[in-house]
Design a protein around this nucleic acid. Structure first.
Lengths: 343, 343
DNA sequence: AAGCATATTGCAATCGATTGCAATATGTCC
DNA sequence: GGACATATTGCAATCGATTGCAATATGCTT
């Protein structure tokens, strides 16, 4: 039998019940040591008895802090799809937990929401103290605008070193290089790249792909780079098409995401191509499913946990008057069946 | 060259600049027809010039409406994992879009956040006007409490007909029945059920499983129901174990989620069991990857789009003084390779 | 020209909590 | 007993917008 308050209690109600002023009540509830211990205790007890909760709106108005961070997930302008890649979900979960741990709420915005002017909507209107933008996408001018407007924000994406706002992201170039070098080690000679290089993260992966080839004395062929959206379907269709085209014979594929890789795998298997014997395949992200497809997928694992924590840490530091710096996170190659030929 | 406001503009600034009172300015900005058209225009122009945005906090305080909905994703008490199933991501995206369309913001809370008392934290504190709870999980008392507290909320889960709060969800029982009937039609005689029936949604699926067997004159064996978490890993391990145990020979598996099914598939293939010839497999959810594993996965498709829209519609109706009703959404069997034996 | 309806605008209270500063009470020292 | 330091508490302003009601202006009627 919980007491069901007829109407919401306010601080003034609590103060009256405790026989103190609102200021004392307010201080008592916030454990301000200047208030006498007994008074403090009494006020807190009464507040608890009446299930009093501070009105977050009033507090925000007065303190000029919302204690809320807006997380914006950029959607692909082309596919119009919001969050689809399981990878996003991973990092989103980490960010959510970390924000909570730090006492912040998370306002989530996806796809169409972002038609809005983020700065106006979230920051100028005081809905949020700062922004986390996930996925730079294809060079978004809106991100650039943010940096001119004094809005505290951090981006998950590709730190190229040239942007003038803080970007946290995996070392995509290094990851791709590891992956492609691995393919070369497994004996691949002609490796296709599946991914849309208009996304800056993917562009970095493509650079890593080229690095690896060049290090092995192989000249990258432009026609082996095939623009592919972030979906299994796109990977499937692109691979089918590649197999029918006059690309010549491939013996390796590096896909810019695991979802793409799985689509590619499907197409290959349908065509009776043996993976990894005839063609070795490597993805990127290490989503949960990668270990459980057949053959299991070799991939580059991003440290989403570190990434999420870092995004939050940098943003909060920035909000609290400090600086936020770009940072590259190390990645790791996870070798599985799709590329291991057992020499 | 955007004008960079030295400090944030307030309504009073705009009023002063326009030479009108704050009340007139406020009304003008909200397109109140009582204000003279010219005045209205002038105020709006000035506001636009100075990139004025209404302070959402102040408005909320005054109007007593946050125009925010808290979405709570229940995590599994056991695995301690937050959002992992791709299915959640789907429905979350739909809800986000729909809330945006309706002019609401979305406060997302996962896993550890939910240690809090939701009612206090989100509703009593006026952070949100209502709650959407996703995943009833294993009979959560906290959901029950909400319904006693007059908080507007809706749940995505299993509408059993006995709960006294609005639940929107797929017709899990019907879906399972379709799936298992399909397996029987394909000639399966002994079908295992992989899923944790302590989750009410899964319980409904188990009932549907039993319905189908009984309709075919088969007596369900309790030992063929194997509790399994919502992950590919759990499906994999459980299936491995099942194959080594003295369950006798199975020729069909109905998994309570696609992720579980994919784990199961992995285990089967590793053991050289031919899918679907020796053992047919059906999942639930129709996540994006299901069409792209090999063999592709037969599954029961949930209408996440309708579900998300309905959740939002019902909640807003409830907030606006109306009623919210539980509702069952129809599902659809998607037949793919993992179960089709071509008779 | 007085009377009254209608169109616009402004005054001032209000939403609920926080906080700088002043006020009071208590204790200590010489 | 007076002076002064310290511990507690309260007053009142403030955050920024919204809104009921009153005030003023304008136009029309007879």
């Amino acid at each position: 039998m919980t007491i069901k308050p007829a109407k919401t209690m306010t601080l003034s109600d609590i103060a009256r019940l405790a026989g103190v002023s609102e200021s004392t009540a307010s201080r008592a509830l916030r454990d301000n040591p200047v208030i006498n211990a007994q008074t403090r205790q009494k006020v807190q007890q009464i507040a608890a008895d009446h299930q009093f909760k501070v009105n977050a709106t009033a507090r925000s108005l007065r303190t000029q802090k919302s204690h809320t961070i807006a997380v914006i997930i950029l959607f692909d302008a082309k596919t119009q799809q919001a969050i689809t890649d399981p990878f996003l979900l991973d990092i989103l979960g980490v960010i959510a937990d970390e924000l909570t741990r730090q006492g912040y709420d998370m306002l989530l915005s996806t796809s169409k929401t972002t038609d809005k002017d983020w700065r106006s909507y979230y920051f100028d209107s005081k809905r949020a103290d700062g922004l986390i933008v996930i996925g730079q996408g294809e060079h978004d001018e809106r991100v650039e605008q943010l940096s001119n407007a004094g809005v505290p924000f951090v981006v998950w994406g590709a730190a190229t070193g040239t942007e003038h706002f803080p970007v946290i992201g995996s070392d995509n170039r290094q990851g791709a290089q590891l992956a492609v070098t691995h393919l070369l080690t497994q004996g691949c000679k002609r490796i296709a790249f599946l991914g849309d290089i208009r996304h800056s993260e993917i562009e970095m992966r493509y650079l890593g792909y080229q690095d690896a080839l060049q290090a092995a004395g192989i000249k990258p062929e432009a026609k082996l780079q095939l623009n592919t959206d972030f979906t299994a379907q796109a990977g499937y269709l692109q691979t089918q098409q590649a197999l029918f085209s006059e690309l010549g014979s491939l013996d390796g594929i590096f896909a810019a995401s695991d979802a793409i890789a799985m689509g590619a795998m499907k197409a290959l298997l349908e065509h009776g191509i043996k993976v990894p014997q005839q063609l070795a395949l490597v993805g990127f992200d290490d989503i949960a499913m990668s270990a459980y497809c057949t053959p299991s997928l070799t991939t580059v694992k991003q440290d989403t946990h570190a990434g999420g924590k870092l995004l939050v840490a940098q943003l909060l530091s920035r909000i609290n008057g400090g600086k936020a710096a770009s940072q590259l996170l190390p990645v790791k190659l996870i070798e599985r069946q799709s590329s291991l030929r057992g020499n």
